[in-house]
């Protein structure tokens, strides 16, 4: 049984019995959809962000760079991608992180596995996918994101790209920071604080997204997307990825809209490619990384990630 079933019962009572909307009308159904999805996503965000933030308190970049600097390939890529699942990524921290990793001897390919996984697999997207598509799709998203991060980083490591890192990066010398001991209480407090601030930041977008999603769910004609973005159109996947790049900051609002578009004929693989592009390839991140790597490496990085996402898109369109 669906663990969210009790919420559906309560929402049905609230919308149909208490507020007296008819379950037969489009409006009633759309409102029910909106209230139910918002509550469900809110609960998932609470739980998932808290758990991920708690795990994160063990993974300060100052600590993980030491771990990743042991020069083992492939295993290193896997480790870096796994840590990337739990760490957030804001475009302003990309540069110090990159330099810190390189300075302490983390191989370039391993650094890129981390740089790909950190934004690509994020807890807010995971929570939304779980809420809107079920846990299987959410898990699929995490696993494919992880595979992309490991393999792209591994390939980049084999390409000998060190010469395309800006020269000054190699000259920076850092002091070692002493790691502060954290008690469990402090970790809980930090996770709680992070959860509060992240939910405050993304939830308005979630509400807007779910609202638009509910309207599409109720009012857009069935299958209206099949013709323009259906499986017959091979360019739908690359197009979806290009459209996703500028939408970075609104991933939380984009995903609920996409979920409604799937009901109207958007293939799941194309949708997944679009959502991955929204979270993984962001314009501010690309611009800021230019400070530490030369244009050629930047181009290689963006193209290989894009190819990985395109591949995922076609693959899921094929198998699902």
């Amino acid at each position: 049984m669906d663990i969210f079933y009790p919420i559906q019962v309560i929402v049905n009572w609230l919308v149909y019995d208490l507020l007296k909307f008819s379950s037969e009308t489009v409006l009633g159904e759309a409102i029910n959809f909106f209230v139910y999805d918002s509550i469900k996503i809110f609960i998932l965000l609470l739980v998932i962000i808290f758990v991920v933030s708690y795990i994160r308190t063990y993974l300060a970049p100052e600590k993980i760079k030491k771990f990743l600097s042991k020069k083992f390939e492939f295993l290193g890529n896997m480790g870096a991608a796994t840590i990337g699942i739990f760490t957030p990524f804001c475009s302003c921290s990309a540069v110090p992180l990159f330099i810190g990793f390189v300075e302490s001897g983390v191989p370039l390919g391993v650094t890129f596995s981390y740089l790909i996984a950190a934004p690509l697999i994020n807890e807010v997207a995971g929570a939304l996918l779980w809420g809107l598509f079920g846990w299987k799709i959410a898990l699929l998203y995490v696993i494919t994101g992880w595979i992309i991060a490991v393999s792209v980083g591994f390939i980049m490591g084999k390409m000998k790209l060190e010469k395309y890192v800006e020269d000054y990066v190699w000259k920076i010398k850092m002091n070692q920071l002493k790691e502060k001991k954290k008690t469990r209480k402090i970790r809980f407090e930090e996770a709680y604080k992070e959860m509060k601030s992240l939910i405050r930041k993304v939830f308005p977008y979630v509400l807007i997204g779910v609202g638009i999603g509910a309207a599409i769910h109720g009012y857009a004609p069935e299958n209206f997307l099949t013709r323009i973005a259906g499986e017959g159109n091979w360019f739908a996947v690359p197009l979806a990825i290009i459209m996703g790049i500028p939408l970075y900051s609104n991933a939380a609002g984009v995903i609920p809209i996409v979920s409604s578009l799937i009901e109207k004929g958007l293939p799941l693989g194309t949708a997944l490619a679009f959502m991955m592009s929204v979270v993984a390839l962001s314009l501010p991140e690309i611009i800021i990384l230019r400070k530490v790597i030369k244009p050629k490496l930047l181009a290689i990085y963006v193209s290989i990630v894009a190819i990985g996402i395109i591949f995922t898109g076609y693959l899921f369109n094929l198998i699902l």
Binding site: S93, I172, M174, Q176
Partner: peptide, 13 residues
């Protein structure tokens, strides 16, 4: 300046 920041060993700002 990123170079001045790195001297302190800080990579998460």
């Amino acid at each position: 300046d990123i170079r001045d920041i790195m001297i302190y060993g800080v990579i998460s700002t």
